[in-house]
Structures are given as structure tokens and as C-alpha cells.
Simulated scan of single mutants.
Amino acid sequence: MATRRLHMAQFLRRKGPIASKEQFVACARQMVSDGQVVVKFGNILAKHCLDQRCSMELLRATEHTQSISSQLGIVARVKAVTGESRASSELLLSNVQNLLQAVQHVLRAAEAACVKGLGQPPADPEEEEVAAFCQQWRKNLTQHRAKEALNSARDELGLRKTRGTKAEPTLMSLVQEQPPQSRNIPKHPNPRKGHTVMDRHL
């Protein structure tokens, strides 16, 4: 998601791989689609989180993301049928940035929910997929912390040094900045269909 946002910002400076208003709008629509994936993911997690406080925080975050995603969809539709306007392009980009920040809030809340633990999901393929994804992430996090605790260098007081240690695995990495790649730009103005929960293309 952050890569698409970067490409859209570059478009306003007449740089980057986006070559037309249609591709610019297509990126925004893809962001809306990605936002819906995260909302669905967050709602499923909130339903099965064992900690009520984490569950409520996750629900608030997903509701906020849903609202911003809907707003971005409206702005994108208006942009698609109007002429070239830098002001409208900047408004669209601003909404994209707001959505990205909202998604990051959901993922931070999701990380807290995963650490607190999840209940057993019902026999629903999508909810089972979410549970398996989160359990694997939590396992990776636990293994990382255990490895760092054993292998990290110590200072003269015997305290673990944090400088130079490998970053912990996070759900946030799904939307963090990556090197721009033109293949991430939709060539057709319609968003992809057939998303699965926490699609790897975020």
C-alpha cells in the first residue's frame, strides 16, 4: 500500500511509473480494495480476541478505516469523471494517506490482539485462515524474541544491547515502504477482484 501511495505522490511531480489520470485513479481504487481487506481482517480478529480491551480497540480502528475507505472511494469516483485538476489529485492523495495511517492503526491493534491470544474460530475457512496467519506471526515473534535474548551482545553491566539487533516481525511490514516497482501499478482502472484476507499484495 505504501508503494502505491509513493507512486501517486510521484505522479503529482510528473515522476514515477504512473502515466495517466486513469492509472492514478486505479491506484486509489486499489487502496480502497486493500483497505477493505484490512477491515475484514480486523473484524474477524476482534471477534475472536480473548482480551476485551484489545477487541474494542480493534473494532474502533476498523470502523475508522471503513469510514475513510468509503470516503476515498467517493473521491476516486469523482476524480474519474472530472477533468485534470491538481487540486482534486492532491485531495485524492490526501485521502490515500489518511487510509494508510488508518490501516497502520488497525495492524498495530491487531498485533496487540494476537499477542493477547485468540479463541478457537468456528469451522469457517476464512476465519480459520486469519487464525492460522496470526498464530504463525505470533510464533515467529516469539521465536525471534527468544533468539535475540540468547544471542544478543551484552554491555559491561550484563544488559542486552539493542543497537544492531534484527527488527521484530510485524504485521505493519505488510504496508511499509518498499522500493518502487512499476509492476505494482494497475494498468486497468478497475481494482483487482478475489481478495483473500490479508492479501499479500498490500
Score class of each variant (00 low, 15 high):
residue 91 L to Y: 07
residue 95 N to P: 00
residue 71 Q to V: 02
residue 163 R to Y: 14
residue 72 L to T: 01
residue 84 E to F: 13
residue 165 T to P: 04
residue 164 G to S: 11
residue 117 G to S: 02
residue 121 P to A: 08
residue 75 V to M: 05
residue 68 I to S: 05
residue 101 Q to G: 06
residue 86 R to G: 01
residue 145 R to N: 10
residue 72 L to M: 03
residue 125 P to F: 13
residue 70 S to H: 03
residue 59 L to N: 14
residue 114 C to P: 04
residue 150 L to Q: 07
residue 99 L to F: 08
residue 158 G to A: 01
residue 147 K to Y: 04
residue 157 L to A: 05
residue 111 E to V: 00
residue 137 W to F: 11
residue 149 A to D: 08
residue 140 N to S: 05
residue 125 P to V: 15
residue 138 R to L: 00
residue 165 T to W: 06
residue 142 T to A: 12
residue 156 E to A: 13
residue 73 G to P: 09
residue 74 I to T: 08
residue 104 Q to L: 10
residue 87 A to E: 15
residue 65 T to N: 11
residue 103 V to M: 15
residue 84 E to A: 15
residue 93 L to S: 15
residue 130 V to N: 07
residue 96 V to W: 03
residue 156 E to K: 12
residue 65 T to L: 06
residue 108 R to T: 01
residue 117 G to L: 04
residue 116 K to W: 10
residue 140 N to M: 03
residue 90 E to C: 09
residue 101 Q to T: 04
residue 105 H to R: 07
residue 102 A to I: 05
residue 74 I to Q: 02
residue 86 R to W: 01
residue 115 V to S: 13
residue 96 V to E: 04
residue 85 S to F: 10
residue 126 E to K: 14
residue 140 N to G: 03
residue 63 E to S: 06
residue 67 S to I: 02
residue 95 N to S: 12
residue 165 T to V: 14
residue 94 S to H: 15
residue 141 L to H: 09
residue 88 S to Y: 14
residue 125 P to E: 11
residue 161 K to G: 02
